[in-house]
Structure formats: C-alpha cells, structure tokens
C-alpha cells in the first residue's frame, strides 16, 4: 500500500434527520403538500378524517390535525389498530386517510390492510412515508420493497407521486376513488417540478412529459424528477430523451406506456424501489403479455438491504442519482 501526501478530503456527508430531504440545493419546494391538500379537501368534504400511528408530525398529518382537530385520530404506535380502525371508520361512512411509514404499513399491518380494507373494497387511503430510499436510517426505515408487497393485493390502487404538484392533485382523487389506495408519501419540503410541464395528475393515467428520439425513460415517484434532470443533462450529449411519468403503479396504464415503448428507442425504467416486483417488472410483464421482445434497462435499487448514510451518497451509490442515470444511459447507448 502506497502512502501519498495527504490530499484535502471532502467532508463526509451526514445522515441528517430521520426524513432527510432529497431536494437538490436551491430547488423550488412546497411545504407539506399532503397535509395542506388533505386539510383543504376536508373543508369541502365532511367525510374526510385523518388517522396516524404516532407519526403525525413525520407524515405531514399534523397540518390536517391542526386545521381539523376533531377529525384527527391518534391511534398510538399500533399499526394493526390504525388500519383495522380505519376500516371501521370507512364502514361508518367516513373517508379515512391513515398515515404511518411505508415499512410499517407494508410489513407490520399487511393482514389488516388486506382483509379489513382491500377485500371489502373500503375507501381507506393509506399514506406511507419514507418510500424506497428516502431515509438514511437503513432497512428498518427504508421501504425498498413496499410496491412489491402491495402489488399482489387485489383492489388496492398504488400511487407513487413525483412531487408536490402530484401530491396536491392526487389527494382529492384518492378520496374520490371508491376503493382503497396506497400513496407513497413525499413529505416536508417537497420539490415542485411538474408545474413546469403541461401536466395534470389523473389517477390511473401515465403522461408523456417530454418527447425524444433516442431514449424513453419510464418512471414513477421522485425518479421522474431525476429522469427529467437526466434528460436535460443527456441533451448536452446530443441524446434526445422522452420521459413518461406513471404515478399510478396499479392499475397500470399499459396503453400509454406501451405506446411510448413502440419502436427502437432505448427503453429504461426508473424507480425508487427494488428492481424486484416494482415498475420494471410491471412494464416487463406488460410487454411480454403482448409478445413484445423489447429490451428494458432497469434503473432502481438493488435486491439487497441498503446501507445507512446520507441520501446523496446513497442515491449515488445505488445508481439513482442524476449523474449515475446519465452514465448508465450513455453506457447502454454504447
């Protein structure tokens, strides 16, 4: 091992708070879009109630609780009770939004969501914080497989919003949908991106945000923000990139996505989730079912338990940062 003169080292990044921000420095953000959207919806719809399992402050539910204290129910750190009770409230004619972290909803309370909510098709809206890799706390908090867990549940609509615009527009549509929904919540200061595009959120619909001749990026959640950033960066490399945002993962808008995947452009899926059981496999199975042999490049989290650390470090390490996406696309193009 050779020793070289001590080079100045960059300071190591810190894990920071439980819910670290994934917004880029200087990026335009909107505070607590879910909490504000729910509080506003409740002004118009008296059936709306909010529940949480000791994570109101960490899922932006506290905004709703402050505005509608008599319609907010603290269920304690008891996720089975949270979702069982949400089912009971829906049976009583209310429209509950029940929040916790995605790991607890998917891993601890699955049986209750499945049998009490999804089977009788009750209008309960599950709000899961920290989807995918949005915390540096490690596997206890990182819901890297929540979509894989929930996709097999009949009747459940799964929504993976990109930003504050998506969330604000999605909340009333989730309440209006008659059956159960699962929202992969982005909380705190959430980037606002999609208002720069000709875009509105429509439950169940994928939207082409920009066209491009060389590559098609199919993405959901915060990875759509990264896809748009990567598309800009790839333009400097004379690569013309199309971005298709599919915030509803189930039911999946096969028509729109497969229409865009026709032809010989490089097809890439981007998801803030393990490459097992999420967007990549949804797209792949849709292609196979129609006899299409399109090669698809999966960009997503690896099939492993992820490390703890700072989000920028981890996003880079696991290949979902803008720079790593650009690298990967250029490599695939040869």
């Amino acid at each position: 091992m050779t020793t070289t003169a001590a080079a100045p080292k960059a300071p190591k990044l810190k894990t920071s708070a439980m819910i670290a921000s994934f917004a880029d420095p200087g990026q335009r953000t909107s505070p607590a879009p879910f909490g504000h959207a729910l509080a506003e919806l409740a002004e118009r719809d008296e059936r709306i109630v909010g529940l949480t399992a000791d994570l109101g402050k960490y899922t932006d539910m506290h905004i709703f609780a402050e505005r509608h204290p008599d319609r907010f129910f603290q269920m304690g750190m008891a996720e089975q009770l949270l979702f069982g009770a949400a089912a009971g409230m829906a049976q009583a004619g209310l429209v509950p939004f029940a929040s916790t972290y995605s790991v607890f909803a998917a891993r601890r309370a699955y049986d209750f969501i499945c049998l009490d909510i999804a089977e009788p098709e009750l209008n309960v809206n599950i709000v899961g914080g920290l989807p995918g890799l949005t915390t540096g706390y490690g596997p206890s908090h990182q819901a890297t497989e929540d979509v894989a867990i929930f996709r097999g549940m009949p009747n459940l609509t799964i929504v993976d919003p990109c930003d504050a615009v998506d969330i604000a527009q999605a909340v009333p549509q989730l309440a209006a949908a008659p059956g159960p929904t699962y929202l992969r919540l982005l909380r705190g200061k959430v980037p606002a991106v999609l208002d720069e595009y000709d875009y509105t959120f429509e439950l169940g619909k994928a939207k082409v945000l920009r066209g491009g001749r060389d590559v098609v990026l199919v993405s959901s959640g915060l990875m759509t923000m990264r896809a748009l950033q990567a598309a800009e960066a790839l333009a400097a490399h004379h690569v013309d990139v199309s971005v298709v945002h599919t915030p509803t993962l189930k039911p999946f808008d096969e028509e729109a996505v497969l229409r865009e995947l026709a032809g010989d452009r490089l097809a890439v899926t981007l998801e803030n989730h393990t490459v097992v059981g999420g967007l990549f496999e949804t797209v792949a199975s849709a292609l196979v079912r129609r006899g299409r042999g399109t090669r698809v490049v999966p960009i997503g989290l690896p099939d492993s338990f992820l490390e703890a650390g700072a989000l920028p470090t981890l996003h880079d390490r696991y290949g979902i940062s803008k720079d790593r996406i650009v690298e990967r696309v250029l490599a695939e193009l040869g």
């Binding site: 069982g84 009770a85 009971g88 049986d111 049998l115």
Partner: peptide, 22 residues
C-alpha cells in the same frame, strides 16, 4: 370478515369512533 384472528376489536374501535363522529 373474521377468520384472521385479532381483527374484530381494531375494526370495532374504528366503527365506534366513526359512529360517534357522525
């Protein structure tokens, strides 16, 4: 729907809360 045991009382709590709220 019973059968998966331990579900009745959590649902009952929500039902009682919901009925009272209404």
């Amino acid at each position: 729907s019973g059968g998966s045991l331990g579900h009745g009382l959590p649902i009952a709590v929500g039902l009682a809360l919901g009925l009272r709220a209404r």
